[in-house]
Design a protein around this nucleic acid. Structure first.
Lengths: 196, 196
DNA sequence: TTGCATAGTTACAGACCGGTAACACCCTAG
DNA sequence: CTAGGGTGTTACCGGTCTGTAACTATGCAA
């Protein structure tokens, strides 16, 4: 898929999807609204009829990303209903797959790196959405019967976050190759300790 | 320290130092050369006499950062001469201190997030410099008599990298608070396995 | 005193940025 | 058939960006 996403759907959806793709590939400040609308097969006026500013478009893109991530969690539950430990391992596999998907890190983290104004609207939603994801992982670990669920969840999440930026800086052949091994080792090690 | 770094040194040094500071705080694309030269107490022509482009200035800033990081490693050796394990613990403490220093992550990682063109000159030096740092940590772990030195070094480095972006996204009260605990636990655990 | 390298000043080029105004077009609902 | 909302088109605004030209001022060294 190049930048030209011009399926026939409603302009707002095309703009949102195209912006998500282009922000991901080229960064937020690396893409202008003209380029987005052109790739989406529409024009600037239509964009500004649906989004009051580029900043609002950015926020909506981040929310759309989070929604997609939420669907991922639901897929784990659907695939291994009730088996929380299996879902945790599925999370590890999915995370590893994302590392090899492309060399770009987490869109939220990248956005946070670019948008430095402390009160930028995007910063609030990033914080909020990241907090949700953290909580989901903590809950999963706890429900999987792991003792220090918060500590394991936070460790896994830091490892994953670190692996994503590592891929972005040194490439997929760097430290991130060991991610699955690290994560699985941690889970084993935490399961060995006293469970709830 | 605000953005105005106007000590009386040679213009090139002032520009480099000011650019480093401003790139760190506001991101690379968030700072123009005009703003840099003004904060450095000089002017655009002088900048372009010393650096052939903004891209070259960026690269020089990253190299300066790496040099500062190199000095940090030398400080460990100076403080605990020959005691590699103590140096490893010093690295953990230093890393934790950097987490609480300010809410901005690693300049190299941030630059990689912003500069998405695959053949951007900065991407080469980022890769090169990150590789050097990785190797230093691996060597330190190995010389500290740890068995799976590469695995420990890579795990610690992913944890640290992840903690830095976590601070940038959810703040210093997020998962990164557990960094020292995680790192120390890992070192203990790896020392328990067969050593070199 | 002369000569030269370094640095400062002003102005500008050319491109791109986010955002808006005014107006013409279509499609569909009534 | 008609009215109106969503869409497309063109042109524009003011601002900022990197990078350069032409010229002046400064300080040091022979």
């Amino acid at each position: 898929m190049t930048d030209g996403v011009v399926e026939r759907s409603r302009p707002r959806d095309r703009i949102l999807e195209t912006a998500r793709d282009m922000f991901h590939k080229h960064g937020i400040k690396g893409v202008g609204v003209d380029a987005i609308t052109e790739a989406a097969g529409t024009n600037k006026m239509t964009l500004y009829r649906h989004f009051e500013s580029k900043d609002e478009l950015i926020v909506e893109c981040l929310r759309a990303n989070a929604a997609k991530a939420g669907a991922m969690w639901d897929a784990f539950e659907a695939e291994f209903p009730g088996d929380k430990l299996a879902q945790l391992h599925a999370w590890v596999r999915k995370a590893a797959a994302m590392l090899n998907a492309d060399g770009r890190g987490c869109d939220m983290a990248n956005a946070a790196a670019e948008l430095t104004e402390p009160d930028h609207p995007a910063r609030l939603v990033i914080r909020e959405l990241k907090e949700v994801q953290r909580q989901r992982l903590v809950t999963l670990c706890r429900d999987a019967g792991i003792g220090q669920a918060e500590l394991l969840a936070d460790t896994l999440s830091l490892l994953f976050e670190g692996a994503r930026v590592s891929v972005q800086t040194v490439g997929a052949e760097g430290p991130s190759t060991q991610f699955v091994r690290m994560a699985e080792g941690l889970i084993v090690s935490f399961r060995g300790t006293a469970a709830g």
